[in-house]
């Protein structure tokens, strides 16, 4: 009981640290001041302005689409890569380990700039395909490292046992390995999603004229200042995500349990 008490206290403290700035950010979307100034004065001004700001809403949706695409592609690629890595003893493996973290080690500015130069040297228009590829490249390490952490700690003897019981390889992967990996795939996907969702520089270099993403809207505003409309967008998105997660968790409780067991 005591152990549980200490555990929950610790978790609550960490969550408090994690959510304190988020709560401030949300509160500022209801504050009348354009510059987040105190004293706090309740106002719906920024939500009204947001409702009329089609450009910001469009940009936010574009960000969600790109991030979702990035997340799906990253999880698929990362899972495939890790399924290979776990069963091979090829010498390539060490090289590939380094290759995968490479996008993490290069400043995004440099990577974005070189992609831009590649695109412009090839004489083509900026477009969403290249943009998506760029996002996948920078988000992939996150998905890979999370799945890797799971896979390496996983008991491989399960696979061997299953194989010796006559299950063919694919049945093993499908029935045993993937369900065990599922939480990591989910977490890796979420991380890939948020990395893409908050990326400014790659989108900025590669996006076709006339389109925009939420980070582009934010970072382009810093010369003269962005308004708490940005806080309002974030608040709407946070609330929507939370509701969505709760909804999915409730509906799919049974099937989730099946997967996570």
């Amino acid at each position: 009981m005591l152990k549980k008490g200490i555990g929950w206290t610790y978790v609550s403290l960490v969550l408090l640290f994690l959510y304190a700035p988020i709560l401030v950010l949300m509160a500022m979307s209801f504050n009348a001041s354009k510059y987040n100034a105190l004293p706090f004065e309740f106002s719906m001004r920024w939500y009204r302005e947001l409702a009329g700001n089609d450009k910001l809403i469009d940009a936010s949706l574009t960000s969600v689409y790109i991030a979702a695409g990035t997340a799906v592609i990253c999880v698929v690629l990362a899972t495939m890569l890790m399924l290979w890595a776990v069963q091979t003893n090829s010498k390539l493996k060490r090289w590939i380990d380094s290759l995968v973290v490479l996008p993490l080690t290069i400043p995004w500015l440099i990577l974005g700039l070189s992609l831009l130069l590649l695109v412009s040297a090839a004489g083509i228009d900026k477009n969403f395909t290249v943009l998506l590829i760029g996002h996948v490249v920078i988000s992939l390490p996150y998905a890979v490292l999370v799945i890797k952490a799971r896979l390496q700690s996983m008991d491989l003897t399960i696979n061997e046992a299953s194989a010796s019981l006559g299950a063919n390889e694919w049945t093993t992967v499908w029935r045993i390995t993937l369900p065990l990996l599922f939480p990591a795939m989910l977490a890796g996907g979420f991380l890939a999603f948020v990395i893409s969702f908050d990326n400014f520089i790659l989108s900025y270099f590669l996006i076709p004229g006339g389109s925009s993403t939420l980070p582009i809207e934010i970072y382009s505003s810093i010369k003269f200042g962005f308004t708490p409309e940005i806080n309002a967008v974030s608040t709407v998105m946070l609330t929507a995500t939370t509701l969505l997660i709760v909804l999915i968790a409730t509906i799919m409780r049974s099937s989730l349990k099946f997967f996570l067991k």
């Binding site: 083509i124 477009n127 969403f128 395909t129």
Partner: peptide, 9 residues
């Protein structure tokens, strides 16, 4: 890269 470009063109 050009292939990607053409497609979206």
């Amino acid at each position: 890269v050009s292939a990607c470009g053409n497609k979206s063109n």
